[in-house]
Design a protein around this nucleic acid. Structure first.
Length: 366
DNA sequence: GATCCGTGGGG
DNA sequence: TCCCCAAGGAT
């Protein structure tokens, strides 16, 4: 809109980028990934931080780098090892892509991350943000790394109303950030915007009196409701489903299967089971799903308890059943991605959170 | 452009 | 309880 463009030019009179850089010098938090500008370490941090809170990423960062200290080490690792290191972090495609990208960097770039944004963006798991972040933070390239914090800070500062996920507003925001990035060192400038968005320009209740940009901020000057900027499309209500799973025990070993390599929880291990059909009881669903998935019909199923687990777009109530399989019985089929594991082996497999919760129910019944 | 892909914390 | 949100990317 013309109105948005007018506001952008008005706000430019205040030297926001300079004020922001000065603020960042004194408010920069000590974070593990800020101790080094090594491209590999910057990369790992950026991927960990995708759609993930700083506090969560901190829990994984050092441990991941101890286990995979170099691009080469990551490239050599098995997918299972990398997924195990990523266990609980969510969005497991990030871990799979990390390993694939490491292999590509070794094969095509001599083991070093390429020093230009276009080459970075060709690597798996590198989108516009991550390529710009690594480019600016590790290599000092003058590129705008725009993510959720930046969209919030900039849309408020320049008074850009409307849905920030729309392409025209995206271009406007990126262009505004690019303007700031040209005013100073690109890495610190990008980081400063993110830092401000996280610690001051918060989504629901921003701490405007502490903000170095308050003087030029349209949101502040025109007294807009902070919750209305940035604008986002409404999200539909989250559906609820019920499912049953079986923890089949034979001589202290549990039967587990590996999920398909792509898609939801791809490559992780879990117990057999599935959704409960409309006119089906939890135990009937459990028996049917186990038979369908393993070729074996479970006996003596007993309910151990229920587990509640929430995905972004799905709330699941999990009915967890225990079952004994006689030592002499054939039991479920084994093979690729299907095996019996003792507790120590189970602990070494990458397991989704919901399955971990379920396994705790079983442990309590031993 | 719309949808999928996890998990955890906060109001 | 419910909803929002988060250093996005892939398809």
């Amino acid at each position: 809109m013309a109105e948005n463009r007018r506001r952008v030019s008005e706000a430019r009179r205040f030297d926001a980028s300079n004020a922001l850089l000065h603020w960042f010098e004194s408010h920069r938090r000590e974070l593990p990934w800020r101790e080094s500008r090594d491209p590999y370490r910057v990369w790992i941090a950026e991927v960990l931080l995708q759609q993930t809170r700083v506090a969560t990423a901190v829990r994984y960062y050092d441990r991941f780098l101890r286990q995979f200290p170099t691009v080469q080490a990551l490239a050599r690792a098995s997918e299972g090892q990398v997924l195990k290191a990523w266990e609980g972090a969510g969005y497991y495609g990030r871990a799979r892509n990390l390993r694939r990208a490491a292999q590509e960097i070794v094969r095509r770039h001599g083991g070093k991350l390429p020093q230009d944004v276009e080459a970075l963006e060709e690597l798996p798991g590198f989108g516009p943000y991550t390529a710009a972040a690594v480019g600016s933070l590790a290599f000092g390239l003058p590129v705008a790394a725009l993510e959720a914090n930046g969209m919030r800070v900039l849309s408020r500062y320049f008074g850009i109303r409307g849905d920030v996920t729309l392409a025209p507003n995206q271009r406007r925001l990126r262009s505004a950030l690019q303007g700031w990035v040209h005013q100073g060192p690109s890495g610190p400038m990008n980081e400063a915007v993110m830092e401000l968005g996280e610690t001051v320009c918060a989504p629901q209740s921003p701490r405007c009196p502490e903000c170095p940009l308050e003087r030029g901020c349209v949101l502040r000057r025109e007294r807009w409701d902070p919750r209305s900027v940035p604008g986002r499309p409404r999200k539909p209500p989250v559906p609820r489903v019920s499912a049953s799973i079986a923890i089949i025990d034979r001589n202290g070993r549990w039967y587990v299967q590996r999920r398909p390599g792509e898609g939801l929880l791809g490559g992780l291990w879990e117990f057999p089971g599935g959704k409960i059909q409309p006119d089906e009881s939890p135990i009937e669903a459990c028996r049917r799903e186990v038979r369908e998935e393993t070729g074996w019909t479970p006996t003596r199923l007993r309910l151990l308890g229920t587990v509640q687990h929430d995905y972004t777009h799905l709330h699941v109530t999990l009915h967890v059943f225990g079952s004994r399989c006689a030592a002499s019985a054939p039991g479920p089929r084994t093979g690729t991605g299907r095996r019996w594991v003792d507790p120590a082996t189970f602990a070494r497999l990458p397991i989704p959170r919901a399955t971990q919760k379920a396994s705790q129910l079983m442990s309590h019944h031993l």
